[in-house]
């Protein structure tokens, strides 16, 4: 008779935590579910009953948003910018992090400080100078310009995460590879990168999510409609289709879908990467 009593106590003890999680899930997941239901309803339906469940699923709204409302263009612009930026961030960030984690050279601490201090600068502070620089180089209002800004802006955080992970790879592995005859670059390519896969997944996922939702740089540095990324597209949609809440919700779902897919695939690897080394 003792075992059920213990489990009951444990259950009671867990109740506050469960309640907290329930409230938290409602607060964060509720709005998302609401937008998801709205994306399948028409605007008149929504105005008639804002919180109702769809009486009929209007899947055709997605096709309409994709073709008639230019979401297809915004989506591919976002894809090109974010995928290229994340790719460059991963390669450059990993190389930089490997150097900071492995080599002690004259001024290495200063280099590390300067690079990582990039993290503390708010984007608003740099936006004017970036605007001027991109204009000078003919990169204003181009996807390439936005990619360059994204890579520069997120390199510090990428290196910070990767360096923390790479620094935990035992020096003996690198010494062993050196004795096995491998050059510094081969050691980076064949030892650091494969072992650092969990951390790389973390930075890829984080950067993808952050850049996919990035608004400030995009709104300042892009002006042409056919160059806009998804967050700009959503905003533009709000302006040109006043109060078309239904279509706005459909556009938001198109924007969010890739992120959710990415997170669902890599969340476990990402958490592994972020907590690696925390428990030995």
């Amino acid at each position: 008779m003792e075992a059920p009593a213990i489990s009951f106590v444990a259950y009671v003890r867990r109740t506050p935590l469960l309640l907290f999680l329930l409230v938290y899930t409602l607060v964060t997941g509720g709005p998302f579910l609401w937008v998801a239901t709205m994306s399948l309803r028409t605007t008149p339906e929504i105005f008639a009953a804002p919180y109702a469940f769809p009486s009929r699923f209007h899947w055709e709204k997605f096709a309409e948003a994709w073709t008639k409302s230019n979401y297809g263009t915004y989506f591919w612009n976002s894809m090109i910018v974010v995928v290229t930026a994340v790719l460059l961030l991963t390669v450059i960030g990993a190389m930089g992090a490997h150097c900071l984690a492995r080599y002690r050279f004259r001024g290495s601490r200063l280099v590390r400080f300067v690079i990582l201090s990039g993290m503390i600068l708010p984007p608003q502070l740099m936006i004017l100078s970036l605007f001027q620089i991109l204009r000078d180089f003919g990169l204003y209002n181009t996807l390439t310009g936005l990619i360059v800004v994204y890579v520069a802006g997120h390199l510090a955080m990428t290196m910070y995460i990767l360096e923390g992970f790479f620094a935990q790879i035992p020096q003996d592995l690198f010494d062993a590879a050196r004795m096995d005859g491998y050059s510094d670059f081969e050691i980076f390519w064949r030892i650091t990168l494969p072992i650092g896969v969990p951390a790389l997944f973390t930075t890829v996922t984080l950067n993808f999510i952050i850049l996919w939702n990035e608004f400030l740089y995009a709104v300042v540095l892009l002006t042409d409609d056919d160059k806009r990324t998804l967050p700009l597209g959503v905003m533009h949609f709000m302006g040109s289709h006043q109060l078309d809440v239904g279509m706005l919700a459909t556009g938001l779902m198109i924007t969010i879908a890739p992120i959710i897919l990415l997170y669902a695939c890599f969340s476990e690897t990402m958490i592994k990467g972020m907590t690696a080394g925390a428990v030995r």
């Binding site: 035992p170 003996d172 010494d175 062993a176 050196r178 004795m179 005859g181 896969v197």
Partner: peptide
Amino acid sequence: AKDRDIAMVFQSYALYPHMDVYNNLAFG
């Protein structure tokens, strides 16, 4: 180091964690 014709066994063994035993042996 690679040209000294020396092999070393480390305290931590320094086995490459992402390779199987065969590839650990064959890597060098």
